[in-house]
């Protein structure tokens, strides 16, 4: 699983209300509609700027707050290829894996807006092509990698009918 795109940088503690505001998420299950408003409280232009495969890059505790799965789904539907952060809030982390959005913990301090990045999820390698530097990433546990490889927990359940942990 290789993902290539540009970096869109955000700070620490980006919460799920910032990713997709409650005022939209309760009204519809249309993820394309929600995707139009993704990150809008932090960057009103984000939904227009983001290109398929681009990276959301953040500091610590990304995705803190509510359990709304609309948060990773809105990012996915906006075209975000992966989220890189120094750390993630746990419910968001689970939800991202379950919905098939790659999330990777790494040192994001030297990634600048617009940097071109290449992530190889299987090998656990992240390259900053603009700065010609490799950034060490924390490897995903095999079970989570398996869910991502299946395309999320929905596809995993369609395939196995239940949890297939090993």
């Amino acid at each position: 699983m290789e993902i290539k795109g540009r970096a869109h940088c955000f700070g620490d503690d980006v919460n799920t209300d910032y990713i997709i505001s409650g005022k939209y998420k309760f009204k519809t299950l249309d993820m394309k509609e929600l995707a139009k408003h993704v990150m809008e409280d932090l960057d009103p232009e984000f939904a227009q700027k983001v290109k398929p495969g681009d990276f959301v890059v953040a500091g610590k505790n990304f995705g803190c707050g509510s359990s709304r799965e609309q948060a990773p789904l809105a990012l996915l539907h906006a075209g975000v290829g992966a989220v890189l952060a120094r750390s993630f809030a746990r419910i968001f982390y689970r939800n991202a894996i379950n919905t098939g959005l790659p999330v990777v913990e790494c040192d994001t301090s030297e990634i600048d807006p617009g940097d071109e990045l290449l992530l190889d999820l299987e090998k656990g390698i992240l390259k900053n092509l603009t700065k010609q530097k490799e950034i060490p990433v924390k490897a995903l546990p095999p079970f989570m990698l398996k869910i991502l490889r299946d395309g999320g927990l929905v596809a995993h359940f369609r395939k196995y009918g239940t949890f297939k942990l090993d």
Binding site: E69, R94, N95, N98, G152, L153, V154, F157, T162, F163
Partner: peptide, 17 residues
């Protein structure tokens, strides 16, 4: 707390990881 996909899997299996 979990997300909707975890809940759906739990509804089907009665379990969660």
């Amino acid at each position: 707390g979990v997300g909707s996909t975890d809940l759906a899997a739990a509804l089907i299996s009665g379990k969660m990881w």
